[in-house]
């Protein structure tokens, strides 16, 4: 989808609200399992935004990898580890909020650069085969590096957690 000119899209507003709310709940929920499930809801919301904006392939990969693999892995680790016995000190919240505000300010400065965006030039729908050929032609080395990284990570995680 190309962004339609005109007023705000209610679907985007809904998905954005859902993502932000569930991200906040993920960090601030009292029980950490609820936080993990809320994080998975956020992944779902983000993937819905991808699908809605036309990134079909990326949306599906987000669904399969983030929700199906990373989300399940995080939920399983959370269930295994359980609740932390030490409570979070309240002072940290204030420090965290301050840091967040500083980052927000610096991001807002970058936001003004939106005015310098080039005008959109529309082309036709993206084919999956085009992504595949670009992935193999231009990013072949990246794919190989990613593959070896993933393999070594899997091997390393197994070695770490093995008794």
């Amino acid at each position: 989808m190309i962004f339609p000119p005109g007023p705000l899209d209610p679907i985007i507003i809904f998905l954005a609200t859902l993502s932000v709310m569930s991200a906040i709940i993920a960090l601030e929920s009292r029980q950490i399992v609820y936080g993990a499930v809320s994080l998975i809801v956020m992944f779902l919301g983000i993937s819905a935004i991808f699908l809605y904006l036309g990134g079909l392939y990326l949306g599906v990969v987000q669904l399969g990898v983030y929700v199906g693999a990373i989300g399940v892995l995080i939920l399983f680790a959370v269930i295994l580890v359980g609740e932390s016995r030490t409570p979070e000190p309240n002072v940290n919240r204030i420090i965290g909020a301050t840091a967040a505000m500083i980052v927000l300010g610096s991001l807002l400065v970058g936001f003004t650069a939106l005015q310098m965006l080039p005008a959109p030039h529309h082309v036709g729908a993206q084919e999956l085969s085009r992504i595949a050929s670009r992935l193999m032609r231009d990013y072949g080395l990246v794919i190989v590096a990613l593959g070896s990284l993933l393999a070594s990570t899997a091997f390393g995680s197994v070695m770490i957690t093995r008794r």
């Binding site: 998975i40 079909l56 392939y57 599906v60 990969v61 669904l63 399969g64 929700v67 199906g68 693999a69 989300g71 399940v72 939920l75 999956l128």
Partner: peptide, 16 residues
């Protein structure tokens, strides 16, 4: 358009 991938993405929700 890529419903084979979507099917496997959905099937991976079951363990959840």
């Amino acid at each position: 358009p890529v419903n084979l991938l979507l099917f496997f993405a959905i099937v991976s929700f079951f363990p959840l």
